[in-house]
Design a protein around this nucleic acid. Sequence first.
DNA 1: GCTGCAAGAATGTGATCACATTTACGACGC
DNA 2: GCGTCGTAAATGTGATCACATTCTTGCAGC
Lengths: 235, 235
Amino acid sequence: MTLAKAMLMTAPAIQKKARTTRPVAVHEEVYQRLRHAIISGQFEPGRSLSVRSLAAEFGVSAMPAREAIRQLAALGALEFTPTRRVTIARMSKSKLDELCEARLALEPALAVRALKGKGAAREKLAAELVRIDALLDEAIKRGDSADYAKFNSEFHFKLYEAANAPVYLGLVESLWLQTGPFMRVVIGRVGTSSLVDQHQEAVRAIRAGNAVKLEAAIRDDIKEGMTNIARADLS
Amino acid sequence: MTLAKAMLMTAPAIQKKARTTRPVAVHEEVYQRLRHAIISGQFEPGRSLSVRSLAAEFGVSAMPAREAIRQLAALGALEFTPTRRVTIARMSKSKLDELCEARLALEPALAVRALKGKGAAREKLAAELVRIDALLDEAIKRGDSADYAKFNSEFHFKLYEAANAPVYLGLVESLWLQTGPFMRVVIGRVGTSSLVDQHQEAVRAIRAGNAVKLEAAIRDDIKEGMTNIARADLS
DNA sequence: GCTGCAAGAATGTGATCACATTTACGACGC
DNA sequence: GCGTCGTAAATGTGATCACATTCTTGCAGC
């Protein structure tokens, strides 16, 4: 059993019927769990998945697994082989180049939209980001790659969700889903200790309501992250 | 029967089993037809759809229709209401703003990637674009809104596919799927005769291998298209 | 005309099944 | 060890069904 499979299996089987309020659809929960696992780098590029293996792991029928797979494929996180097998998206240098460029085009612009709120909302956001960043720093110290990836994506998505820009957010989610397997390779090769980020600079810019500085922090953060991926030598 | 439904119904029921080479999956064909209809503005924002109505229209079972719906929802073209009904994505001024900004961020950069080929490939692309643009101009003269939308999207996607940048292309496809229903409102209100574009400038820039001019043409094309949408008064 | 209610129809969802194709594995021969 | 073949298992796919929830429509009362 692989690490990725073990991590998925630590979650209990999905509760199917709550009967109190409207339950989250099973396929949505399968999607969210898979999304998280992919963004966190729990799957290596090219790894095979199947409808039935996912259904078994999550303790559900094939239908919700199919729907989750279809969604993730639409977002570029999963690919169908020419013989119709499902795999985690594969990586290449050209794809990394595209992901980097597209992220640089979208994420700073998205982030500054989070500055439109009042000072109190910005301060609340900043405090939340500081909390997440502290957990991230601890994960780095422990060399805990799973928590590193978890809190890094939480930091970014907390900020991007605060921007209240659903079109942008959908695009960025797709980019992160495609980048996740790259991150798995990075962390496997360089560990967590050499990973740097610009989260503190971002928090400072948010507190100051400074769009130019926030864009710069996000841009630098992306560049550094992508440099790590490129350095890990994909071939 | 609405216009949109009639247009879908003019297509024959999907051929299910070719038996010669590997058939295109039924769900993929449903997806492609729906994608085209949405990008072409054949559905008004907020229009209800259902798995069974689509299945009936395409002459297939519910499964391929479900999968197509799931894919399109992941790309933002369809939405689920709080009571789990499926609708075409609704529009708003804020969403239009986001779409415009994201398109400006991505499409010029994508287009210039198509200039990386050799001169012969660029000339071939330019010739193909000229052919499509001629069909587009005829559609404008005839006031044929369906052909207008069809050839306009064909022009753009022919260019963007030539860029050989699948990550970018997936993002842009999502943006066009979300913009399509806006275009339906525009064409309904202002007709085709006042629609202008920068396609000839784009073709000139492609022939010259001039990235700066191509970016500018695409940028201006997007701005003009989006100005039309804004002018059509969404509220 | 408006409101509330009941009944029937419509709907998304999850389960299950069968089919065509692909993959995995063991046996055999070189 | 490698290649080939046959068999069984795995896989994505489309079909069908049933269930819980929502929507629509007709009717009655005010």
